[in-house]
């Protein structure tokens, strides 16, 4: 565990807490893509199947369980409790266009052709693009509440910090995983446009509004 990895995990955790607090406090999931949330739930459940096969550390097990459980709670809040506030009309991204290619790619390019490893690889590929329905929703409505922007910033920062962690591990531990690194790069690049708007607008107290 190095500082980049720890900050990355904390950033991920903060993102999830911000999202749940936003939904709970405002009693609304307006502006949040239920499709991205479904993709994240698929990502965590397929990646953390190794909870049954491998023990890494108490920290690792705890975080995995938190990610799986909070993603399910989020889906429940969006599709049951606060369903009336869910922005169906704008959340129209076709997630099968992300799931199927991620699955095919995982079957073709993986470290080992076993069920658990292919599902792990699938989850890595799917996570790299899972935010697209959310970014699509923001671009369709043309704006995002600042709390949603903070959520996206924390969520985007997490994989960016992991990139630094992988650079560190390459030199310090002779460890690297090309699949995770390439997917992590793609994932972080997808946020770049948002990061730019966040820094130039939201941090200066303005609303995140896309140029017309």
């Amino acid at each position: 565990m190095n500082i980049f990895r720890l900050l990355g995990d904390l950033s991920h955790l903060v993102a999830i807490i911000i999202l749940l607090l936003k939904i709970w406090k405002t009693r609304s999931c307006a502006g949040i893509s239920g499709k991205s949330q479904i993709l994240f739930a698929i990502v965590y459940t397929t990646r953390y199947l190794d909870l049954f096969t491998t023990y890494v550390s108490t920290y690792n097990t705890f975080m995995k369980l938190v990610f799986i459980m909070t993603s399910i709670v989020t889906i429940f809040l969006m599709n049951a409790k606060f369903k009336a506030t869910y922005d169906h009309n704008h959340d129209t991204f076709r997630i099968e266009f992300l799931i199927l290619p991620a699955l095919v790619l995982a079957l073709l390019i993986n470290n080992e052709f076993t069920i658990i490893e292919v599902l792990w690889t699938f989850s890595i590929y799917l996570e790299s693009v899972a935010i697209l329905p959310q970014l699509f929703l923001v671009s369709k409505t043309g704006e995002a509440e600042s709390i949603t922007s903070h959520y996206l910033f924390a969520l985007g920062s997490y994989r960016g910090l992991y990139l630094l962690n992988w650079v560190y591990r390459y030199y310090a531990e002779d460890h690297y995983d090309l699949i995770a690194i390439v997917a992590g790069l793609v994932q972080t690049i997808l946020y770049c446009d948002f990061f730019y708007l966040y820094i130039t607008k939201v941090l200066k107290g303005k609303k995140l509004q896309l140029p017309a």
């Binding site: 190794d50 491998t54 550390s57 690792n60 962690n165 690297y176 090309l178």
Partner: peptide, 10 residues
């Protein structure tokens, strides 16, 4: 350089 058999990250 090697790839770890088990995934120790999240």
């Amino acid at each position: 350089y090697h790839v770890l058999a088990k995934h120790d990250e999240l």
